Computed example of a mutant assay.
Amino acid sequence: MMLLDGKAVLVTGASAGIGRAAAIGAARHGADVAINFLGGAEAAAACVVEIEALGRKAVAIEGDVADPTTATDFVARATAALGRVDVFVNNAGICPFHAFLDMPVETFERTMRVNLHGAYFMVQAAANQMVRQGGGGAIVAVSSISALVGGEYQTHYTPTKAGVHSLMQSTAIALGRYGIRCNSVLPGTILTDINKDDLADIAKRKRMAARVPLGRLGEPDDLAGPIIFLASDLARYVTGAALLVDGGAFVNLQ
């Protein structure tokens, strides 16, 4: 079943990790895809090549989501390339691990600008395009299990992911009248560039995996299915929801 056949899907932070998995997964389900990226032009180009090999249109557009003008530029250029916006996946995010008591102001503010401010303006730009063209749409934001739990070295990060989750709840109300659904996925620990340094400690990696009922840490492709489901008509009556994708880690408190 091609769950996104003929749809135009936009994904931020899609040159690697969860964003890349979501972009390629959408193409496998029949979508044309526009990806946003910052740096890593070769990785972005490789993602485009893989999407095109599936017989779908693809375009890569560079831009820093921390700059509000990137949002309108990305949506406008993606719309010009693909014709419309049916699905928007807000994925771009950073997590430079740091202790709380000496958190540099610039680290805190950069994390806020990328993860939360970037999500706000990107979602706003995509929603405006969906409203202009009519026909509704779907917005899926990549939040985190960190929206629900704390992290000693993530005091700057966890509030942004809680904010992204809250943003989807509020935009679900604001945009429902236009037929636009807004949901979030909450990944557990996923093996991506965002945590590769932290998980370079093999003992820590094994300890974290042992806490997951399914017995392993997540991989980017583990998020593709849930994102595509929420973007598809299979979830046509789902909005304002949050889907944990964590291998059961959150419920394993014993």
Score class of each variant (00 low, 15 high):
A43M: 06
V142R: 00
A43G: 08
D5W: 07
F88Y: 13
G225R: 07
N183P: 12
N128E: 14
E109F: 01
T158E: 01
D32E: 10
H29F: 03
H29G: 10
Y153P: 00
T12A: 06
G40S: 08
A138S: 15
A22N: 13
N90A: 15
V11W: 05
A46W: 02
A45L: 07
D73R: 15
A58G: 14
P96D: 00
L116D: 08
G136C: 09
G163T: 02
I194L: 14
K7E: 10
P159D: 06
P68E: 05
A235V: 10
E106H: 05
A22K: 08
P68W: 07
V164Q: 08
I18W: 06
M2D: 14
V65H: 04
L230C: 06
A200Y: 01
R205Q: 15
I35A: 10
D198V: 12
A80T: 09
G218Q: 02
A66Q: 10
V185N: 08
F229S: 04
A209W: 02
R113W: 00
A231D: 09
D201T: 13
G17M: 13
P68H: 05
I35C: 07
T155K: 01
G118Y: 01
N115W: 02
L253V: 14
E219F: 09
T239R: 03
R84Y: 12
T158R: 01
V33H: 08
G30A: 10
T158F: 00
A119T: 14
Q133L: 11
H117P: 00
G63T: 03
H165V: 03
M130H: 07
A141R: 03
A34G: 15
I227Q: 10
S184V: 03
A249M: 12
G215T: 04
K161I: 00
R207H: 04
F229G: 11
R113F: 00
D221Q: 15
G118M: 03
L101C: 03
G83V: 10
A231K: 06
V85S: 12
V87K: 09
Q133T: 14
D5C: 08
I180F: 10
E106G: 02
F100Y: 07
L186A: 07
T69Q: 04
F250T: 12
E106C: 05
N90P: 06
G247C: 13
A23F: 11
F229C: 05
S170I: 06
A78I: 13
L223D: 05
F97H: 13
A200W: 06
T192K: 02
A81L: 09
C95I: 01
R207Q: 11
D197Q: 14
K161L: 04
T111I: 01
R205S: 13
R28V: 09
N115I: 02
P213N: 07
R236Q: 15
C182I: 07
A138C: 11
Y237K: 10
T69N: 09
N128A: 13
